[in-house]
Simulated assay, not measured.
Amino acid sequence: MPVTALVSAKSCGVTTSALALTLASKRPSLLAECDPAGGTIRAGFLEGEVGAGFGLYHLAAAERTGPDALAHAFANHLWNMDEAGHRQLLPGLTDPAQAAALGRTWPALSEIMHVMADDAGYHVYIDAGRIALESGRLHTTLTPAPLLHQADLVLLVVRGTEQSLALAKHTIGPLRTEMDERGNGADALGLLLIEDGPYRAHQVAEALTAPVLGALPFDPGTAEFFAKGGRPPRGYGRSPFLRHARTTTEHIEAAAARRAIQQQYPHKPANPQLAGVLQRLNERGGQRG
């Protein structure tokens, strides 16, 4: 299963989208709330059920002890979001000031997430929050850069509005360069569209020169439920929002599988001699015409 990181140029519903994908997936799934600006699921969707003594921040101290301590702490700080344990959550930071302590933890944490994906069969979703840039690069404290570098896919969450696309255009170039030079390649970058606004998927893909790998309908009622918890809106289980989220998880898995095959069997460059023959044949054909 893939490790998929979700980010945005500004607040575009990253956490809501990541939560929806995690809950809608047909496969076991894990949501790691790794936004350096702080997590919101603990106080929102979980309605304070999880205390501050539980979650991401405590992994930093464990990492300094060693890999075994980090792996043990990671398992102990996962929260079951269903009775079967098929939906797991790593709750985020309770204070943005805690983010600086995680700088050296991100790479090791990324390795554990890939073990969860590759060996345990979990589709791992990372809520990486808002992209922060410094001199055209991912900010090393305000963005969990190693998690993006090592993710199988990075989805930039955008809305179909002029404002959202304008902000995304300034972000996607540096993000593409970052993935190309330090990450898994620029082709790991895709878009997740929130269908709020006049622009449709093909227009968004053309404007940002990146594929739209999924789209979620604008659903304020369900979004509020994910943001604040409480009673689900009527028809929640059969809502278009969850249906589209489930379809999006399948598209993400298919895209990640295609990339894995392409990386395993890369396109071989053409034989230079054969290329020369073909060029001469084409030239002759043009002269005869």
Rank of each mutant, 00 (worst) to 15 (best):
V124C: 10
A100K: 15
M179P: 08
A186E: 13
D152G: 03
P107Q: 10
E111P: 03
R137T: 09
A186H: 12
T177I: 00
T161E: 13
Q98F: 13
D180H: 13
I131V: 15
L175P: 04
L147T: 03
A99D: 10
G173H: 11
R159K: 10
A168K: 00
V115S: 00
D119S: 14
L142Y: 14
A117G: 01
Q163V: 01
T143R: 07
A166C: 07
A100N: 12
L167Q: 15
L109F: 08
T177N: 10
D187S: 01
Y125W: 14
T171S: 11
L156A: 04
T177G: 08
L138K: 03
L153N: 05
A120T: 06
G129S: 12
G103Y: 09
P146T: 09
H170A: 11
G185F: 12
A145T: 01
L133F: 14
P107M: 12
P174R: 11
I172H: 03
H123E: 15
L165M: 09
P107R: 12
H123K: 14
H170N: 13
W106I: 04
P146A: 06
G129R: 03
A101T: 14
M113C: 13
T141P: 02
A186R: 15
A117W: 03
L153F: 09
S135A: 14
R130S: 07
H123F: 09
G121R: 02
A97Q: 14
Y122H: 12
Q150Y: 09
L153Y: 02
T105H: 07
E111C: 09
E181S: 12
H123V: 15
P174Y: 10
V124A: 07
P144E: 00
T141E: 07
L133C: 13
G160S: 01
G173R: 13
G183D: 07
R137H: 13
G160R: 04
E134P: 08
V154N: 10
T141S: 04
V124K: 03
I126G: 02
E111A: 14
H114Y: 06
A132L: 06
T140F: 07
A97R: 13
H170Q: 14
I126E: 06
I112K: 02
T177F: 07
I126T: 05
V154I: 14
H123W: 12
R130Q: 15
G136I: 02
D152E: 06
G121L: 06
L148I: 13
